[in-house]
Amino acid sequence: MANAKLICALLLCILVTAPMLNIEASIPCHTVKVDLAACLSYFLKGGIPPPSCCKGVQNVNNAARTTKDRRDTCNCLKTTAKQYHIVNFRFAAALPRFCKVNIRSPISASIDCSRIK
């Protein structure tokens, strides 16, 4: 019985103090790539992005809550675009407008991700 009370007390302490911890979780690059995979044909050819692409853009935008998240997402996208040569940045820059998603920084091949707020 004493062990159950101790466990309950520890769980209560964790629940009370958890919101006070300032932990900045980062969005894994793999998650960003998966969310934006439906945009691949749009990145290559332009046109109108499919709804699944816009949903992915919304998911990434919603997940990038902290400055670190936004910088990590930016670096992930830049690295992936350079690695695979699959992104026409003119099309990518228009994606938020098509998807009606307000992002905090412009989309550009020359963006300095470390300057994103």
Rank of each mutant, 00 (worst) to 15 (best):
M1D: 08
M1W: 01
M1S: 11
A2L: 12
A2T: 09
N3H: 03
N3Y: 05
K5Y: 14
C8T: 10
L10G: 11
L11W: 10
L11F: 14
L11M: 14
L11P: 06
L12V: 12
L12H: 00
I14K: 04
L15A: 13
L15C: 13
T17D: 00
T17L: 15
T17W: 08
T17C: 13
T17F: 15
A18Q: 07
A18M: 11
P19Q: 10
M20H: 10
M20A: 06
M20F: 15
N22R: 13
N22D: 15
I23N: 08
E24R: 12
E24Y: 11
E24K: 14
A25F: 13
A25V: 11
S26P: 01
C29G: 11
H30V: 08
H30N: 12
V32D: 05
V32Y: 06
K33W: 00
K33G: 03
V34K: 12
V34W: 00
V34I: 13
V34E: 09
V34F: 01
D35C: 06
L36Y: 04
L36N: 09
A37G: 04
A38Y: 03
A38V: 03
C39T: 05
C39R: 09
L40V: 02
S41G: 01
S41V: 10
Y42I: 05
Y42R: 05
Y42F: 15
F43Q: 02
L44D: 00
L44F: 02
I48C: 00
P50C: 12
S52W: 00
S52K: 13
K55A: 11
G56K: 09
G56M: 10
V57R: 01
V57C: 02
Q58P: 00
Q58L: 15
N59A: 08
N61E: 12
N61S: 14
N61Y: 02
N62E: 13
A63I: 01
A64Q: 05
T66C: 12
T67S: 14
T67V: 15
D69S: 13
R70S: 07
R71C: 09
R71D: 10
R71V: 15
R71P: 10
R71I: 15
T73Y: 06
T73G: 14
T73W: 03
C74L: 00
N75W: 02
C76N: 06
L77V: 05
L77P: 00
K78R: 09
K78A: 04
T80C: 01
T80A: 11
A81N: 05
A81R: 06
K82D: 08
Q83S: 11
Y84M: 07
Y84W: 14
I86W: 03
V87I: 14
N88D: 15
F91L: 02
A92K: 08
A93W: 06
A94S: 05
L95E: 05
L95W: 01
P96Q: 14
R97S: 13
F98M: 08
C99W: 03
C99T: 07
C99N: 10
K100M: 06
N102C: 02
R104P: 07
R104W: 00
S105Q: 14
S105C: 02
S105A: 15
P106V: 14
I107W: 12
I107D: 01
S108G: 03
A109F: 03
A109P: 15
S110I: 02
S110T: 15
I111T: 15
D112V: 08
D112S: 15
C113D: 04
C113N: 09
C113G: 07
S114D: 11
S114Q: 11
S114E: 09
R115D: 09
R115I: 01
K117V: 05
K117P: 02
